[in-house]
Amino acid sequence: MTTKGVRRPLGLAPTAVLLLGALYCLLPVCWVLAASTKTRGELFTTNAFAPGTGLFSNIADLSAYRDGIFWQWMANTALYAGVGALLSTAVSVLAGYALAKFRFFGRNMIFNVLIGGILVPAVVLAVPQYLLLAKAGLANTYWAVLLPSILHPYSIYLARIYASAAIPDALLEAGRIDGAGENRLLRVVAVPLMLPGMVTIFLFQFVAIWNNFLLPFIMLADDERFPLTVGLYTLLATGANQPALYNLVITGALLSIIPLIALFLTMQRYWRTDLSGGSVKS
């Protein structure tokens, strides 16, 4: 309310940079939108951004491909991303809260190891994880993709930062004086305060697992368990002597981002600062 009437002049350079950035991000999406409406014949022969006439026949073809295995892949991806992101958020919040609010032996060491973990790209770990899970007899199962997704150092780091900023020590102390146990404090005080952070972590992980390619590619042998990324890749890389099924892949790519967009639009409202943010006067 205080900024009313003090409108800053429109910064020309920043706006231009942002517009360019938006264009850079949105152009490929527009292309996928336009290309998925084209039939095989139209795909490479008509203007790149001109809509075609085959969206529904593409979707029908895709649904008919190998008795609708595309939808099986979609369900698999939803399972991997949904369950994986939920478990990962739970682990991250517990770990981050503990690291932020409790002093115990080895706390800094654990945190430093986690920071180190952030620096190791998940791609590097995929093959060792496969060999480990193969030994445990879990390769080529749903667990093979779910288990490695659960522990995510960056999410724990994020949860710790968020917990130390969003949960005032005074509030926890007040709770303890009032006789609340640690479990109750976590449930009633910590988790509600961390909700916006949890949503962020959940979305990050959901998107990361949804788009993950290498891990499921290595872990899964049975195409009934493939997620969308690996499944669509089998349509694209069909061997040297088969034409790639471009129009099906592009349509599949479009259908596969719709749930992500829907998720973002619905989860956005959790990102507002909550009322309890001002519960302590400091």
């Binding site: 060999l131 193969a134 590619f217 290595i218 890749y233 069909t238 061997g239 088969q242």
Partner: peptide, 20 residues
């Protein structure tokens, strides 16, 4: 059904190493 190409070969070699 797998994807073709170089990656398919790498995947098979990895699986063979792991006894799978």
């Amino acid at each position: 059904k797998q994807a073709g190409g170089d990656e398919a070969a790498a995947k098979f070699l990895t699986a063979a190493k792991a006894g799978n």
